[in-house]
């Protein structure tokens, strides 16, 4: 019985790491620009396929219609592909900010919601033209064998996701709280006008926030691909769950978003132990409860940081 609970926890943390990473990416743009990229799901899918293309290009191997050979991800190639996907997605993040967000940011109305969704639709259509609708199985760099932790089974890729998520979060937290760039970002988040008067280039910070946020989404795509298969439709589900995690944890607090993502992952797998079909009901009921009683999210209070 204990093994069952450990399995539930391990499985929950593994998927929670993915949610946390994407939840963080939502938080980054929300705290600095008060806008969000509603095409984040498409950025995840697009990132996964950039990763697929990079793996094939770097290894010089031919990919099948629905899978790419295991050797393609061996050695340095997977980290390199992950880096390429992060950079490409980051550049696209700059594009989406310049084309679809900045013209509307700070103005009344929610035009940026529609324009970012539209950007996502365009991205998905381009992806379908290039790669087609079929899912592509991506190999994990550490192979596919099951590892045992106290009786619970876990795949190497799930540990890679978890480790990458935690590492990125720790680095991000350090940068935000200890460096000048992080302090500039927090200043812009607090009040763009004041930050501007203090000599901070608000525009550059905002562009940087979108590049970082989109880069994270692209990286998440490459990380998830060996678990869920790369598909142009895979991102939306993850993005929705991650957004839910961000709401639960508190959209304005990056740390809270991370906790929210992990809470959501573990909650999902625990509900599965009871009645799996109730998973979505439990998750979204929790969101409604959180919004009703703590609209700032469970960890939202931490946003009052001294800059």
């Amino acid at each position: 019985m204990l093994a069952t609970y450990i399995q539930t926890l391990v499985s929950g943390l593994a998927i929670g790491g993915v949610y946390a990473l994407i939840a963080l990416s939502f938080s980054i743009t929300f705290t600095t620009t008060k806008t969000m990229n509603f095409a984040q799901g498409e950025f995840i899918s697009f990132g996964a396929f950039i990763g697929v293309a990079a793996l094939l290009l770097l290894s010089g191997l031919a990919g099948g219609l629905t899978a790419i050979p295991g050797e393609a991800a061996a050695g340095w190639r997977y980290p390199a592909a992950a880096l390429i996907a992060t950079v490409v997605a980051g550049v696209m993040g700059v594009l989406i900010f310049l084309l679809a967000v900045r013209p509307f940011a700070g103005k009344r109305g929610m035009n940026w919601v529609m324009s970012t969704i539209g950007f996502g639709v365009i991205l998905q259509s381009i992806g379908l033209t290039i790669w087609g609708p079929a899912p592509v199985m991506v190999p994990s760099p550490l192979g596919d064998g099951v590892l045992r932790i106290a009786g619970a089974g876990v795949r190497p890729q799930e540990l890679i996701v978890l480790a990458s998520a935690i590492a990125i979060m720790v680095i991000f937290d350090f940068v935000m709280r200890r460096t000048r760039i992080g302090k500039a970002m927090m200043a812009v988040a607090h009040s763009p006008q004041t930050a501007s008067l203090m000599g901070i280039n608000v525009n550059t910070v905002m562009i940087g926030a979108f590049a970082l946020s989109s880069g994270l989404a692209g990286l998440a795509g490459v990380l998830i691909a060996p678990i869920a298969s790369a598909s142009l439709f895979m991102g939306l589900g993850f993005a929705l769950k991650a957004f839910s995690g961000a709401i639960i944890g508190g959209l304005t607090n990056p740390r809270g978003c991370i906790y929210g993502g992990f809470i959501l992952g573990v909650l999902e797998s625990s509900v599965g132990l009871w009645q799996a079909q109730w998973k979505e009901i439990v998750v979204f009921s929790l969101i409604i409860l959180v919004l009703a009683f703590r609209p700032q999210g469970l960890f939202g209070h931490a946003s009052i940081d001294k800059v």
């Binding site: 869920a228 599965g272 079909q277």
Partner: peptide, 18 residues
């Protein structure tokens, strides 16, 4: 039951197993 996009069904399977 499980979702069409689920990547981990260990909770449901553990119930079946027990």
């Amino acid at each position: 039951k499980f979702g069409v996009n689920d990547t981990d069904m260990t909770s449901q399977l553990n119930k079946m197993k027990s």
